[in-house]
Structure formats: structure tokens, C-alpha cells
């Protein structure tokens, strides 16, 4: 057992854990943040994507113990002050989800795409950037639309805030 401290959704968390514990298990089992899902064993489906120090990573492929001092944001921490994040709104508005299981990872990846690539995303870029997120329900059609719209909404929100 070893001790780890990290900030999850703005709150500092310290825990003594088995070094084997993956970040995904730490979030789901230790913190009961069950919005982060696990859909495969080979780091491919992306249902577990969270942000660590502002970057999207697969929480099923990171040891919690290795992230001492990290800033972690999960789907539960994306909405600020009771307002949905523009990307969350976009997924609802454009019917970018059906069963909802891949959705948290999809949204976290989508926000990361916008952080890296900016607000003007064409369809080809979005489809390529979603390589690490698998959805079985939507055929991606509406996810692509949601990401494009969410990207522009994020930019608009940023402009409004400045």
C-alpha cells in the first residue's frame, strides 16, 4: 500500500492504495465517481478518458499511484457552477448519445480536441481525432455534429468571458 494525493474535480484527495490500482478504479471504486467507464482491456475504447493536468488520457491505462500531485478532471467535474459545459450541451442538442456508456469519455476527448485544435473543426479532423473513442450506438454521425457545434460554442463562451 502507498499514499497518493491528487486533486480531483477541484478537491484534494489523499488515499492509501494498492499500487496496482488504476486511475479508473481509483475514481470509480475509491471516489465513487462512476461517470468514468471501463469498456475494454486494451486501451482502445476510450470510455475511461479523463483529463490529467489538462490533457486527455485513458484512466484505465494509468496507475493512480503514478499521478501523485496531478490535477484530474472527470465528467462529473466538467459542468461548472451548475451550468453544463458547452460540449455537454452540444451532445444533448445534437443527439450525440444513445446508451450513454461511451459518452463521458467521448465528451472528455471532444473537449481535449478543441483545446488542442481550436474551434473550427472540419468533419475529417473530428473523425480522425476520435480514433481512440469507440461508440457502438450512434454510428458517430451525430457525435461528429455535436463535437463541431460544441467546439464553436466553447469558443463563443470563451469570447463572452473575456
Amino acid at each position: 500500500m502507498a499514499s497518493v494525493t491528487m486533486t480531483v474535480n477541484g478537491k484534494s484527495v489523499t488515499a492509501t492504495i494498492d499500487p496496482r490500482m488504476l486511475l479508473s478504479s481509483f475514481l470509480r471504486e475509491h471516489l465513487r465517481l462512476t461517470g468514468t467507464h471501463v469498456g475494454c482491456d486494451t486501451s482502445q475504447c476510450g470510455a475511461c478518458v479523463v483529463h490529467v493536468d489538462g490533457r486527455a488520457i485513458k484512466s484505465c491505462t494509468a496507475l493512480a499511484i503514478s499521478l501523485d500531485g496531478a490535477q484530474v478532471t472527470t465528467i462529473e467535474g466538467l459542468a461548472a457552477d451548475g451550468h453544463l459545459h458547452p460540449m455537454q450541451e452540444a451532445f444533448r442538442e445534437h443527439h450525440g448519445l444513445q446508451c450513454g456508456f461511451c459518452t463521458p469519455g467521448m465528451i472528455m476527448s471532444a473537449v481535449d480536441i478543441v483545446n488542442r485544435k481550436g474551434a473550427m473543426l472540419d468533419e475529417h479532423t473530428i473523425r480522425e481525432e476520435l480514433e481512440g473513442n469507440i461508440c457502438r450506438c450512434t454510428g458517430y454521425h451525430n457525435i461528429v455534429k455535436a463535437v463541431a457545434a460544441g467546439a464553436q460554442a466553447m469558443a463563443a463562451t470563451k469570447v463572452a468571458a473575456e
Binding site: V38, L84, E93, H95, L97, G100, I107
Partner: peptide, 19 residues
């Protein structure tokens, strides 16, 4: 109509069996 169930899914509040 936009889906009423979506709020819980986009905020990570869905309750699946493993949850």
C-alpha cells in the same frame, strides 16, 4: 424533442449495473 434522459448521461450520473 431533445432527450430527457440525456442529462444524467452527459453529466456522468447514469446508473449502470457496475455502478
Amino acid at each position: 424533442v431533445r432527450r430527457t434522459e440525456d442529462f444524467r448521461f452527459i453529466t456522468g450520473k447514469g446508473q449502470y449495473t457496475d455502478d
